[in-house]
């Protein structure tokens, strides 16, 4: 990314209960009860590399309003990462860990990059992924929560891991405080 380029991360969630998050949580409680979170949220993640300009967020809002494939306002809502206060309906007392899962090779991101580069919004590159929010009981040390989150993330066998297959995907902790 060039110095002048600005990266904007958008997280898109279902307004209704997310069935993938519900299934993942029940599966983890059954297979990895020691490491499973007590709450789990799932978001479509869009990383947008935007061309320089003072109106970056205005352009992002216009882009989102123009593409219902990115956010369908009838069933989804979105937030810009870095503003965790905008996340609705959460138990804020939990120790929260954010986890980003991306494919190593991803034709969806390549195709969206090509589509949006040709648009008027000044997008240089798009990378798609999934953002998971894992909530651990209040008082859980951050180090413990992060260790457990990585354990449930990386699929090693039928018994260990779920959220990412490390053969084709990467899973990284996302630090909301430093974004």
């Amino acid at each position: 990314m060039s110095e002048a380029t600005r990266r904007v991360m958008i997280a898109v969630r279902l307004k209704a209960v997310d069935p993938a998050a519900s299934t993942a949580l029940s599966t983890l409680r059954r297979t990895m009860p020691g490491e499973a979170p007590v709450s789990l949220g799932r978001y479509d993640l869009w990383e947008l590399e935007m061309s320089p300009g003072t109106d970056t967020m205005d352009r992002v809002r216009s882009l989102i309003a123009s593409y219902t494939d990115i956010v369908n306002p009838n069933k989804q809502s979105w937030m810009k990462l870095g503003h965790p206060d905008s996340v609705p309906g959460e138990d804020r007392s939990q120790t929260r860990v954010w986890l980003v899962v991306k494919d190593h090779d991803d034709s969806r991101s390549e195709n969206w990059s090509r589509i949006l580069r040709a648009s008027r919004f000044g997008v240089r590159r798009v990378q798609c992924g999934v953002l998971w929010r894992l909530g651990y009981p209040p008082g859980t040390a951050r180090e413990v929560a992060e260790e457990n989150a990585m354990a449930v993330a990386l699929t090693r066998s039928r018994r260990v891991g779920l959220l990412a297959n490390p053969v084709s995907q990467e899973a990284k902790l996302y630090d909301e405080a430093s974004s």
Partner: peptide
């Protein structure tokens, strides 16, 4: 034995996905 050592990842072909 038992380890996940492969993946069936998203289709990769020029100009198309899904």
């Amino acid at each position: 034995a038992g380890n996940v050592e492969a993946a069936l990842a998203g289709n990769m072909s020029p100009g198309r996905s899904g």
